[in-house]
Write a protein that binds this DNA or RNA. Structure first.
Length: 578
RNA sequence: GGGCCAGUAGCUCAGCUGGAUAGAGCAAUUGCCUUCUAAGCAAUAGGUCAGGGGUUCGAAUCCUCUCUGGCUCACCA
């Protein structure tokens, strides 16, 4: 259904014929991959353009313009093209017959939904995202990774990947000790009724009070005399489950779905760490060695050379080899993470994607190295890094600091703004770019707020349908052929780009493109709407002529259908009226 | 000091992965409501794509150096 691919295929076939005609052998097949069909930036160049002649000029040992002339002779015979022209230095521009667009619209409405090229071919893909430590509910900063991951998953699904969304629970590290110690204080606080002083190195969050109450309800004061180790054994799982429930609730309120939550502890219990060590041994990628002192500016007074168990990460391009064991003999986070990635490799039998925060930038190479080592270079790990989000209020930065406990929780954000605005705005920047999230704009009911703008376009469409008093939404081709005005045709052309937007979004793993497209579509629609004020013929409803109105309704329906598919990817429900 | 990400209009950012005269939105100026939602639209103005060098038919995009900002740098997670 992607019209660009249709013509790209035709152009490629034509090139092969031309090569054969001229007894020229393509020295390298990859050359054809450089041939693209795209929409020229400037409308006056027509509907489509191709760089074919520029790509092939050296093969033909001729100037691009002359190659273009040869190609044009072939293209001229195709009945879809109203005009084929050559522009310097050798672009070939196509103007399509009106009925090509009209047919496209007709087919879309017949099918009732967009179809996308299934280049995922049902291949498995594992997408790990959020994976926040289970020490508290999510805060505002987590929203970005959550939304990017969730939408990316939806996009990849549309193009045929079999995708698993996974949350990795770090339930095995130091932070869990800190958590349980904090809970123990809160529990004793419940029993004594005296407010506890929470030391700086423990978690102060009020959510732990609620968990402490639960423990008190369940165990009464029977845990009062326990030392920390035994208290830990008693409540550890309960506390983590309680917090995971908070996190799951946050995710669900944000419209983010997970297929599976995998615990770090369970991976180790299943023996994946041993498996990792064996693989590394077999491939001679592990050794006892001493790392060089890092040359950082940071205070490294405590640094001392020490023999450690190391993974030969540098073999795969990492800057340094990486420690697997800490000085106290326990495994490093990285060692466990290798085990987790081996687990993902084994069960996925396909490529892996991780959505990470910017603070993990320094971690990418070692984990990529790990996946290469553990999969004999067969599995690809793509790391998508989300830059930080600056929360703003009317251009003023809102400061968040962990120490003071002064950071905005995701649940507060959702309560204040609703999930739709958050989801949309989180995708209005490409993920590597720092994002300014302005409360004032998110609450605005005007163009400052892009979701609002898109909703408004959809609601206007709905309103037209309602006011038309036409309830038959089966459209004949004759009706659709009445859409002849350039402004209307332009909208059809824009709509026809939608599958390409989704496919490129998937290919490059860039969900933000969906938002930009929706804004543009909304904008073009609003524009056409207003043209109706100047030019009567462009109004959508023609009271005295049902068939003209129906032709316009066909266009309106296709716009709604497209906005709906876009919002659906973002998991936003279109507003029927406003 | 090393690594990674970024630097595009006064501000916030796109730029279909190398294509044609670099595009939007804010902000500024000026217009458009007796008529399908003015919560909107149109027009004007705004640029050494941080800077130098290179690669080629062609560079904001690729390579290289320099500058600036952010994140990060054994034994945390």
């Amino acid at each position: 259904m992607n019209i660009f691919n249709t013509y790209l295929q035709y152009i490629n076939e034509t090139i092969l014929i031309l090569l054969k005609d001229n007894n020229i052998v393509l020295e390298n097949d990859n050359l054809l991959e450089k041939v693209v069909v795209e929409v020229p930036k400037n409308k006056k160049f027509g509907d489509l353009s191709t760089n074919a002649a520029l790509v092939l000029s050296s093969t033909f040992k001729a100037k691009p313009f002359d190659v273009a002339k040869k190609l044009k002779l072939k293209f001229d015979t195709h009945h879809d093209f109203a005009d084929v022209s050559i522009a310097n230095p050798g672009f070939i521009n196509f103007t399509l017959q009106e009925d090509v667009w009209q047919k496209l619209l007709f087919n879309l409405l017949e099918t009732g939904e967009w179809k996308y090229e299934q280049f995922g071919k049902n291949n498995n893909l594992n997408l790990e995202f959020v994976s926040a430590n289970p020490t508290g509910p999510l805060h505002a900063g987590h929203a970005r990774g959550a939304v990017v991951g969730d939408c990316l998953a939806r996009i990849l699904k549309l193009v045929g990947f079999n995708i698993t969304r996974e949350y990795y629970i770090n339930d095995a590290g130091n932070q869990i000790d800190v958590l349980i110690k904090s809970v123990q204080l809160r529990y004793l606080e419940q029993l004594s009724g005296i407010n506890a002083n929470i030391p700086e190195n423990l978690y102060p969050g009020a959510y732990l009070i609620r968990i402490a109450k639960k423990i008190k309800n369940q165990y009464d004061d029977t845990l009062e005399k326990l030392d920390y180790e035994n208290f830990f054994l008693k409540v550890n799982q309960l506390v983590i489950n309680e917090i995971l429930n908070l996190i799951k609730k946050d995710l669900s309120n944000l419209g983010v779905e997970m297929d599976i939550f995998t615990s770090e502890k369970s991976i180790i219990e299943k023996g994946f760490l041993d498996k990792v060590l064996n693989i590394l041994k077999d491939n001679k990628l592990i050794y006892e060695g001493i790392l060089e002192k890092p040359k950082g500016k940071a205070d490294l007074d405590e640094w001392e050379p020490r023999p450690q168990l190391l993974f030969k990460s540098s073999f795969f391009g990492d800057d340094s080899d990486r420690a697997l064991k800490k000085s106290d003999g326990s495994w490093t986070y990285f060692a466990n993470d290798m085990a987790y990635h081996l687990y993902k490799i084994e069960k996925t039998k396909g490529n892996l994607i991780n959505i990470l925060g910017a603070d993990h930038l320094g971690y990418l190479k070692r984990i990529e190295s790990a996946v290469k080592a553990l999969s004999s270079n067969k599995i690809k790990l793509v790391n998508k890094v989300c830059a930080i989000v600056h929360l703003m209020n009317d251009d003023k930065k809102i400061k968040m600091s962990k120490r003071s406990g002064n950071f905005i929780m995701l649940s507060d954000l959702i309560n204040d703004l609703g999930k739709d605005v958050i989801r949309f705005i989180m995708l209005t920047r490409k993920n590597e770019q720092v994002l300014e999230f302005d409360f004032k704009k998110a609450l605005a009911q005007n163009k400052d707020n892009p979701v609002f703008y898109v909703h408004y376009a959809y609601a206007r469409c709905k309103s037209i349908v309602k006011n038309s008093n036409i309830f038959d939404h089966k459209f004949s081709f004759e009706e659709i052929k009445m859409l002849k005005d350039n402004n209307e045709l332009y909208l059809i052309k824009l709509i026809s780009q939608w599958p390409k937007v989704v496919e490129l979004s998937a290919k490059h793993m860039e969900p933000h493109r969906i938002c930009y497209y929706l804004i543009e579509l909304a904008s073009e629609f609003h524009s056409l709407w207003n043209k109706g004020k100047i030019d009567e013929s462009l109004k959508f409803i023609h009271v005295d002529d049902t068939s003209i109105t129906k032709s316009k309704l066909a266009l309106i329906n296709s716009i709604m259908l497209t906005i709906k598919s876009g919002l659906n990817i973002l998991s936003i429900k279109p507003m029927e009226d406003m």
